[in-house]
Design a protein around this nucleic acid. Structure first.
Lengths: 182, 182
DNA sequence: ACCCTAGCTGACCGATCGGCCAGAATTTGA
DNA sequence: TCAAATTCTGGCCGATCGGTCAGCTAGGGT
């Protein structure tokens, strides 16, 4: 065996993460991932049951984090909830940069009938959040997440101190939601 | 002949526009468009040289508009330019809703090496706008356009009076860019 | 009546996709 | 040392993709 199972899986996930972020889920073939990871396509499917499973595992950490944030927001009202949402999303995105970027990149595809797997039911909640005018605050949060995706794209690889980036993003997000004038 | 050439082309473009907006460029096959337009796949390629040509024609009206806006912005400085950019983008997006939505939807794909045709060199300018920190104001405008895409997705089909939507979007955009506190 | 031409189509092509499988290669444990 | 278990791969499969092509069909001009 060339690499241990855990190493191999990690390498595959690393390659897939970068390629998905660069070319999107649909735009990345199993062969692309295999070549990048330095193994055969068949080897991918030994470690992962199918292509969806790779993405699902990549996004896995985001799911519970998002659910937890969602739970925290449920107990708050309008403005307080918005502030908490922004802080939570900034925090979440800083801890799962590329993962969140992938999520954001396909956010539109997720909304209008996905070919992507519905990781932890995020798709359904996205759809709920965006359907109807009554969900306006939530829609705003998701809109801001989309914007955050582009911001992270340009600033992502920058060796910006995390604290600086966090403060910057938080300020920008609050401004977006009209909660800070600055 | 079932339909006249111009009618056929119009029907194809109409189908392609809706399908591209719903499932993305890569997510829509020629057969999908043909079925929706009520003709054969081969008939599509009689009226359009290839798949790219359909998208190119759909986005054609946006190109010159964008270039004209860009020209207008060139002569302005920081804050004034940002205000004009927002107003211009709102205006542009209201006139080319679905087209702009498609553009926004694939904005990320366009940036990281596109499989999409570079309509009127927009790709290159997007890349320029997002590379380096110095282009921050432009990057912000594009980020706002991405957000606008999601907003239009949810509010798009709504029978909202155009003037109301325009005012709302303008206010939101200015708030996003930190130029209006409201 | 005739043909010509624009419009349209079924059948087909090569390429690529995700996924499968039999078996080779390598490591492990007794 | 050797069999068992794990890891890995070449080759293949059916489906689907964008695109081509020879030829059918339906009017319009003469």
């Amino acid at each position: 065996m060339a690499r241990s199972a855990t190493t191999m899986r990690a390498d595959i996930l690393d390659s897939a993460l970068r390629l998905f972020a660069a070319h999107g889920f649909r735009g990345t073939s199993l062969q692309d991932i295999a070549t990048d990871a330095g193994c055969s396509k068949a080897s991918l499917l030994y470690h992962f049951t199918n292509k969806d499973a790779i993405l699902t595992e990549l996004l896995a950490p985001v799911g519970p984090e998002f659910a937890e944030l969602e739970g925290r927001l449920a107990g708050l009202d309008g403005e307080e909830a918005a502030r908490a949402a922004v802080a939570g999303l900034v925090d979440l995105s800083l801890r799962f940069r590329l993962q969140v970027k992938i999520l954001l990149q396909d956010v539109d595809a997720l909304i209008c009938r996905p070919e992507l797997p519905d990781v932890d039911g995020i798709t359904g909640r996205l759809t709920d959040a965006l359907s109807g005018r009554s969900a306006a605050p939530q829609a705003r949060v998701w809109a801001w997440m989309a914007m955050l995706g582009i911001i992270l794209t340009s600033a992502g690889e920058l060796a910006l101190p995390e604290e600086t980036l966090r403060a910057e993003l938080t300020r920008g997000a609050l401004r977006t939601l009209g909660l800070q004038t600055d």
